[in-house]
């Protein structure tokens, strides 16, 4: 359960201040599938950073369960990111020198599980996204859709409560986009995740339970 109260985020860059989020108050119950839309520069990624404990608000509070993400120490935030939150990025963000399996394994490193268990769980996660036979491939040897599947496996291997995806289909063609959305939706349904997807794509947004629109830092609910 996310609780955002009067969240404002300002960036100071090159002498001028940009208000990326402007007094946002918002609740996201556990297990909800939320789509966030809006024009470019509206503040979508900034909101996702607040939800993902990647950055702190300038003012206001962000709570995930009992944890206040705005005031916790960096090391606690690192811990929360490592255990409770999974990320899927627009650019996949796989580590180019590691194999698909090893990329998935990196998400288990903060949990301190044994090497054997790590490999097992990573292999199962890859299988669950349909890439069980491509574990030893480097990202460069995989298609865009396959890379995003690896990234999803990496986000889900630690069995988080929350999955945050920033334009997960932005780099993919329509068929692959639908394929990835099917996958995310399926996982969301199976695991009871809280799934927040930032997207430009109305086709993607239509599949969500709830749609938010952000423009100039202001959040609006869409029916």
């Amino acid at each position: 359960m996310y609780r955002l109260k009067n969240v404002t985020k300002r960036y100071d860059a090159k002498g001028r201040t940009v208000t990326a989020l402007n007094d946002v108050t918002l609740e996201i119950p556990d297990g909800q599938l939320v789509a966030i839309q809006g024009p470019t520069g509206g503040g979508k990624s900034t909101l996702l950073q607040m939800l993902g404990a990647l950055d702190r608000p300038t003012s206001g509070t962000v709570e995930l369960g009992d944890a206040s993400l705005g005031t916790l120490a960096d090391s606690r935030l690192t811990g929360i990111r490592g255990t409770e939150i999974g990320f899927v990025f627009q650019g996949f963000n796989l580590i180019p020198t590691l194999t698909a399996l090893e990329n998935v394994e990196t998400a288990l490193v903060p949990l301190g599980v044994s090497a054997d268990e790590r490999r097992d769980r990573a292999a199962r996660a890859l299988e669950s996204v349909g890439l069980g036979d491509r574990g030893d491939h480097r990202p460069a040897e995989l298609s865009g859709g396959q890379q995003q599947r690896v990234a999803i496996a990496r986000a889900l291997v630690k069995e988080p409560n929350v999955l945050l995806a920033d334009e997960p289909t932005g780099n993919l063609d329509e068929d692959t986009r639908d394929e990835i959305m099917d996958l995310l939706e399926g996982l969301w349904r199976d695991r009871g995740l809280t799934l927040v997807i930032v997207t430009h794509d109305s086709a993607v947004a239509r599949r969500a339970q709830r749609r938010l629109h952000i423009k100039a830092g202001k959040v609006k609910e869409l029916a």
Binding site: G79, R81, G82, F87, N93, P96, T106, A107, A155
Partner: peptide, 16 residues
């Protein structure tokens, strides 16, 4: 930058 940012985002500590 992106690689290390990603690792930090998925929970790798600074020390690691």
């Amino acid at each position: 930058t992106r690689e290390f940012g990603t690792l930090k985002a998925i929970g790798w500590s600074n020390r690691r």
